[in-house]
Amino acid sequence: MLAGDISQAVGDTPLVGLPSLSPPGYALYLKLEGHNPTGSVKDRVAKYLIESAERDGRLTPGSRVLEPTSGNTGIALAAICAPKGYKLTCVMPRNTSEERRALLALYGADIVFSPASEGSNGAVRVATELAADDPDVYMPFQYGNPANPQAHYETTGPEILRDLPTVNALVAGLGTGGTLTGAGRRLKEHDPAIKVFAAEPEYGDLVYGLRNLDEGFVPPVFDERVLDGRIKIDSRKALGATRDLVAAEGVFAGVSTGAALAVALRVCTPRRLPEGSNVVVVSPDGGWKYLSTGAYAAGDLEEIAARLQDTLWA
């Protein structure tokens, strides 16, 4: 694979079988988005966000980009923006891993922290306020920008159909809803019988510390109608499945990959999917950016999961 520059190395990620973890009668495949240039599925989104803004004239040389993110989108934007000369400010909740901060700093991005107790919703709130005060910044706003699901509609979805034309179900994590909406829509256009399931991270109380329900947030890009089911997975279950993936398949992935895998294992029942089904699970990133959280350290899994439950891992 030859790429003229790093942005052309985005996508075309491997789809690998999970022969040891697949339940009898089902075949699980993991799409390894950690193989993207900055190590996450968000490289696809960042590329679409920036290139669409350039086409529309909303970004010009010297512009500053401002974006709320729990980390991966920020790092992906940083890699796209740095060589183009765009300055970048990321608004990120304080309860994100050290690696995310270190990588953003390395790329020269500025970080504004939002309160841990407000989760990603708080980052959206703070970024929206900052952007409103400053006409010179451009906020791509992954949560509301159609370029986000479009990236998955035009790249992730077609790659899955190319590599596994007999796919019967898709499982992906729910963050902005971009992967599920874009790839899910593409797969269902190909075959309406394909089922789409969301794995929703479930955190500890801290992350749901909203003062009132009006602070709740459903990303505008998320089309809930594309889903056939939405299942929440807590840190303990996500971590357990992430470790199973290492032990049984040799795949080192991030915690949200474990969450998606746990949902895939749950939906592999004849009531939901006929036997013989091929199930594609999207692995949004590798495990590298979570090492400092202790997620992979030796010790009691319950204790590690308890420490992890207030750190954003999706």
Partner: peptide, 29 residues
Amino acid sequence: DEDVRYLGGINTPLDDGDSVSILPAVAGG
């Protein structure tokens, strides 16, 4: 652990021993 919007909504049947959770809508990314 399954969102009732994809079960039967407010009419979702319940069995003894089921666990119900309520969470505010939060995003990621």
